[in-house]
């Protein structure tokens, strides 16, 4: 079979809305860990909210962390289980708002984990409030007239911050097209290889659609990522200490 559903994906239907990117990111995680033969080592640390629904979709053992604490919890677990592959799965609200101090300091300590951040530019589960990655002008339930940076503050591009840090890997992918999905998969796979080789902290952010809270059709959500989100959050690899491309 050319393309088959990864074995680590269960038959349980996810609770995600139609067109939610979490399902794609979760499949990439399943594919990459299977291809690397590390499925039996994976520990997922998931956030509350939409990302938490990953627990039923995959067969991995996992830990449900408090909101914003996935990276700290994952770092704690990894230090005890160094042979395992520990993946924190925060959203943008979790990793860049309430949990930003742990994102920064896990990076400073070069904790040997992967932070796989699903960035949909809103707090999804609570109904689509403004997050640190909500775009200027973007309407959310807590920026009903559109994000006004003079009133709501500026947005955070984590790549601009962490690219100065001594970490193993930093990349931003997207799931807005089949080719983008394949690139995102490459980033995730590289980060997992780095963890296997004990290279240290990896953060891979994936721009991901939230049609429900963006008030857009799934098709228009893909366009929004390509045309709007990527204007503020350019894709690519920002730090790469792996040398796996050579």
């Amino acid at each position: 079979m050319k393309y088959s559903i990864p074995k680590t994906i269960t038959n349980i239907e996810s609770g995600w809305c139609p067109g939610c990117g979490h399902g794609i990111v979760t499949r990439l995680l399943a594919e990459t860990t299977e291809e690397l033969g590390i499925s039996d080592k994976v520990i997922i640390v998931r956030d509350v909210a939409c990302g938490s629904m990953q627990s039923g979709v995959v067969t991995y053992n996992n830990i449900g962390a408090a909101h914003g604490r996935t990276i700290a919890v994952a770092a704690g677990a990894k230090r005890i289980r160094k042979e395992d592959i520990v993946i924190a799965n925060p959203g943008d609200g979790s990793a860049y708002s309430i949990g930003i101090e742990s994102t920064m300091h896990a990076a400073l300590r070069n904790e040997n984990i992967l932070a796989l951040v699903v960035n949909n530019s809103v707090f999804g589960m609570t109904g689509g409030q403004m997050s640190p990655t909500t775009l200027p002008g973007q309407k959310t339930t807590s920026s009903p007239y559109g994000r006004d940076t003079s009133y709501n503050g500026n947005l955070l591009d984590i790549m601009k911050v962490l690219n100065t840090f001594d970490i193993a890997y930093l990349a931003r992918g997207s799931v807005d097209s089949p080719s983008a999905v394949m690139k995102a998969k490459k980033y995730i796979k590289k980060a997992l290889m780095m963890q296997q080789d004990n290279k240290g902290f990896c953060l891979v952010e994936i721009l991901s659609p939230c049609p429900t809270n963006w008030g857009l059709s799934p098709e228009d959500s893909l366009k929004f990522i390509k045309e709007k989100q990527q204007e503020y959050f350019p894709l690519g690899e920002y730090v790469d200490k792996g040398g796996y491309d050579k």
Binding site: M1, Y3, S4, I5, E13, R27
Partner: peptide, 12 residues
Amino acid sequence: YKMCPDYVFQIF
């Protein structure tokens, strides 16, 4: 297959 968030497709 690549874009489906709900694992509907498999390609032989």
